[in-house]
């Protein structure tokens, strides 16, 4: 029974990573930029949701939508201000800028409200029920469902809609896409808007599940989500989902074996191993570089 309980624990933790990893992987898939500010947009989403629910008495769904919309706007602003002018610069310049944006967001929030944590209000009154001795949290089922629904929605947008087609074209070859009449700037903005909206949603859900939010809450989950995205194959949407779940379960197993202090290390050992053994990730195919 204990092992089933641990599996349930692992899947709920993994769903959170998966939710953050979806946005990460999408932005990377389209413009090949590891957006380190993603974890901080996630934090902003958590705070927007907190103010919406606790201060302005909004219900869960409107609060979630508000966090998603505001985060989408923030994502587009970040892209326009910080990343757009670096589109033709080296990859490392863009990467360093992303780290800069990440720190800027974190410490701006600390400047305005301090670093003290905030407690999310309780939304689900009776959170857990018992199945054959295993405590299952309604919220973890909810998170898993939301992650799967968002993943399918994302797959649909990328593979079945016009904007998705434009995204894939830009990802393939931005210059050629421009020649074909695709508005590259708008497409990239749309990518950031969708990715950041997902981060915002993840922030609100994280707050509801774990209760405590603070201005630096995005740092570690952001890095873990990055590991999850790489594990699944960065740029591949179902890969992020699978990577997140695997990572969650692995971390839980490490803790369950009594090595709880090694849990964070386990995530990064996975990152190193996957980069050495299978850089394309679980779902990735080794694509040959075109010359």
């Amino acid at each position: 029974m204990e092992w089933i309980q641990q599996l349930v624990n692992g899947i709920s933790l993994g769903s959170i990573y998966a939710l953050i990893a979806l946005g990460y992987t999408m932005v990377y898939g389209i413009i090949k930029l590891i957006n380190f500010a993603h974890g901080d947009v996630f934090m902003l989403g958590a705070f927007i949701g907190f103010f919406a629910i606790a201060r302005w008495d909004m219900h869960f769904i409107p609060a979630l939508l508000m966090a998603m919309i505001l985060c989408a706007v923030i994502g587009v602003i970040i892209e326009r201000v910080a990343y757009k002018r670096l589109r033709n610069a080296t990859r490392i310049a863009a990467l360093i800028t992303a780290i800069g944006v990440s720190l800027l967001i974190e410490y701006t929030v600390i400047f305005f409200r301090g670093a003290a944590p905030e407690a999310y209000p309780t939304i689900f009154e009776n959170p857990s029920f018992n199945v054959f001795g295993v405590q299952i949290d309604t919220r973890s089922i909810f998170i898993l469902t939301v992650s799967i629904v968002l993943m399918m929605l994302l797959q649909f947008i990328v593979h079945r809609t016009k904007i998705g087609k434009a995204m894939r074209a830009v990802s393939h070859d931005a210059d050629a896409a421009r020649l074909m009449g695709i508005n590259v700037d708008n497409t990239i903005s749309a990518t950031f808007a969708i990715g950041s909206a997902l981060a915002g949603a993840a922030g609100v859900i994280f707050g509801i599940y774990y209760t405590r939010i603070d201005p630096l809450m995005g740092v570690l989950p952001g890095l873990k989500a990055f590991v999850a995205a790489v594990l699944g194959g960065i740029g591949i949407i179902p890969g992020a989902m699978a990577g997140g779940l695997v990572l969650g379960v692995v971390e839980t197993v490490v803790s369950a074996l009594g090595f709880s202090l090694w849990r964070d290390a386990a995530a990064f050992v996975i990152l190193i191993l996957i980069l050495i053994l299978r850089p394309a990730g679980i779902f990735g195919k080794n694509a040959r570089e075109k010359v």
Partner: peptide, 20 residues
């Protein structure tokens, strides 16, 4: 006897051990 790291948010796996 178990330990946790400050700033962690998920304690369920260790707590499951303790419960066991």
């Amino acid at each position: 006897e178990q330990a946790y790291v400050a700033k962690d948010v998920d304690f369920k796996s260790t707590l499951t051990n303790i419960k066991g």
